[in-house]
Design a binder for these strands. Structure first.
Lengths: 128, 128
DNA sequence: GTACATCTTCGAGCGCGCTCCAAGTCAAGA
DNA sequence: TCTTGACTTGGAGCGCGCTCGAAGATGTAC
């Protein structure tokens, strides 16, 4: 995470104004770092900035907002679960297609341009 | 996938000019649809358009490009695997934090504002 | 015949999330 | 003392991936 990004996060309210050294330079506390790490983790899993802003805002308001914050996290967790499923499906599809490419390469190596089997279109995804 | 997106994909070369009805309207063949579905799957797993363009380009050149195409897919599959790991970690972290919120809510319900235990900072991620 | 919907084209616009630049301040090292 | 480098600020710019709008042609229903 670059300094530019940290400034940006501060500007848009994801990070509260942080402590400064005597010369005005920012000094991040361990709590700041933990929060930033959390933000990073949420961004890395595609939580929109808007949603993170909402969450940060509620966090400033204290424990009374626990329920709403929990809901945000639960929703995001559901999003993550869905993403994992999509990624796993794509992963499986790619395994299939990569194997197919290996077959094609094999066919080229042994100089056997045609298959007696019906042509395997490497781009056709299996229906599964 | 919207019509706008399909036009866009055609413009940028992800889809070859497709067949037309007598009135000029596009008619997608089953092969077209399979290819588009594949594109969709790759986009849904965060393959950049540029990379898809490269792949599409090689695909036009036929079997001789099998090796390079395979490499693209293998790289993307590795990307996907990494994404899955990140998502799974975030999922676990959220499970932890959500449980923590439930505790806080419980504490509020039974009107017990303080814990004898050291304060649990709900934003601190577990080091794991 | 006449609405109306649906397609066509091209180009412009937009939302997101950074990313960078310019000008200035300060601190330590040669 | 002078250079260097790391920080400060505000605002502008950018890359990506769509997304939309306008103007026009065509087909279907009443």
């Amino acid at each position: 995470m670059t300094a530019h990004t940290l400034r940006y996060y501060e500007r848009v309210g994801l990070i509260q104004p942080v402590g400064r050294a005597h010369n005005g330079h920012r000094r991040y506390s361990e709590a700041d770092e933990a929060w930033i790490q959390f933000l990073h983790c949420m961004r890395a899993t595609n939580m929109p900035i808007r949603e993170m802003q909402r969450y940060a805002e509620l966090r400033e308001l204290g424990d009374a907002t626990s329920l709403e914050r929990r809901k945000i996290l639960e929703d995001h967790q559901a999003e993550i679960a869905a993403q994992i499923v999509a990624l796993q499906q794509a992963h499986a599809l790619l395994t299939h297609k990569i194997a197919n490419y290996r077959k094609i390469e094999q066919r080229i190596r042994i100089n056997s341009p045609a298959l007696s089997e019906p042509e395997v279109d490497c781009e056709l995804a299996p229906s599964a």
